[in-house]
Computed example of a mutant assay.
Amino acid sequence: MQLSQTIPKPLDPLRLLWVHRFLIRQLVERELTFKFKRSRGGLLWLVLQPLLLLAGYTLVFGVILKSRWGSTGTGSSAEFALIMFAGLIFFNFFSAVVSVAPGLIVHNKPYVQKMVFPLEVLSWSTLLSALINGFVSLLIWVVFSVAIRGYVPFSLAWLPLIVIPFAMFALGCCWFLAAAGVFHPDIEHLIPMLMLMLMLLSPLFFPVTAIPEHLRFLFDFNPLAYVLEQARQVMIYGSAPDFGILAAGWVVGLLFAWLGLVSFVRNRDGFADAV
């Protein structure tokens, strides 16, 4: 399925995944294998990386800085790490997709020269690779939750309804940035700084309620803030998500995926000359 230069249909982002599922699976397998090809640990690093990250944040914020969640300062250092790591799963997933996106086409130049190769699937393989890493981190979080609290809330079953639209939003951003990065190479250097700003303006290390009232408007324009808050509702507090916010998230996620694909397809003819 090679999309024409006409405007893609709203369901084309999902249709691409189905039609090219075998090719995408091969690309994901190649990406994960190549990433750890020269390491002795191999795919074991998929587990070790988030595990070491969790241990590092627990040591720094929980033990050394003795940080506690919220204004009351209650809870243990392990509970703080559990809450923080829940948010980091989503931020690291989004960062993994967006950080790679600007150089996605440039770094896969041989595929650009093949007219029959569906370049759109590169964003899907990037997204799914990041999702696999995120899923491994989630499993580690589940084990950590059982070790600290003795249980995992049943509300965790709501998590896919939060993850799927967020993944579609990230996919749309990936298509946008992949196309833009071909013609504007500086974007590849700008994204790391923007991701750092996004991390600082996201409720990763503190709840939204800890932010002064007159500054909360900064978080109203941060889509990641809503995702983190809803994820913690189901992962930490054991309650259902806000279905109003959830519905808006689905609309925004699917819309961004479609618009990102439209941008990518409309600019694809110029990729070969630009790279």
Score class of each variant (00 low, 15 high):
F61A: 04
L161N: 07
A96H: 08
E120Y: 05
I140G: 03
L32D: 04
V60L: 12
L14E: 05
D242Y: 01
S145G: 12
R68C: 03
S145K: 11
L261H: 09
A78N: 11
L255D: 00
S137P: 00
R21W: 09
N133I: 12
G181R: 03
T209P: 06
W45D: 00
R268N: 04
I245R: 13
R268M: 09
V265D: 02
N92T: 09
A157K: 10
R149C: 01
M197D: 00
L190T: 12
P10H: 06
F176N: 07
L27N: 11
E213P: 09
F205D: 04
L131I: 07
H189V: 07
P13F: 03
P223Y: 07
I83C: 06
L215T: 01
T209Y: 02
S4F: 07
W69F: 10
P160D: 03
R15K: 13
I236G: 02
T209H: 04
V136T: 11
F94L: 14
Q5C: 03
R216Q: 13
V19I: 14
V63T: 14
I187P: 00
E213L: 14
Q113L: 14
T126P: 10
I162D: 02
G42C: 05
L122Y: 11
C174Y: 08
E213R: 14
V163L: 12
P8L: 09
F85I: 09
L196R: 15
S137V: 00
V182G: 07
G249N: 11
Q26A: 13
L131P: 02
L82G: 05
G41P: 07
V252M: 11
G181I: 02
L44V: 13
L88V: 02
N222Q: 01
F61N: 08
G134E: 08
A101H: 01
A272G: 07
F264C: 08
Q26T: 12
P118Q: 06
L156N: 08
F219S: 03
M1W: 10
S263V: 13
P110I: 10
Q113Y: 14
I140E: 04
N92E: 05
L215I: 05
I7Q: 08
S123K: 07
P165H: 05
I164M: 02
F34Q: 14
L127Q: 04
S77P: 13
G270Q: 13
C173I: 13
V116C: 06
G244P: 01
A179P: 06
F217A: 06
G181M: 01
P192V: 04
P160M: 02
V100Y: 11
F217W: 15
V251P: 01
V28D: 00
F154R: 14
M1I: 10
F22W: 14
L215G: 09
I236H: 00
P102W: 06
R40M: 15
H20Y: 12
A157V: 15
F61E: 08
H107T: 14
G253D: 05
E79L: 10
K35C: 00
F93D: 00
A210R: 07
R15M: 10
V262Q: 06
F144Y: 15
L48C: 08
I164T: 03
F34H: 12
I64N: 01
F36Y: 15
A225W: 07
A81K: 10
I89P: 04
L200D: 00
L138N: 05
P13V: 03
A81E: 09
H20I: 03
F205L: 15
C174A: 15
S129Y: 01
C174H: 11
G238C: 10
L88H: 07
I236Q: 01
W18D: 08
L161P: 09
T209S: 15
L128I: 15
V234R: 00
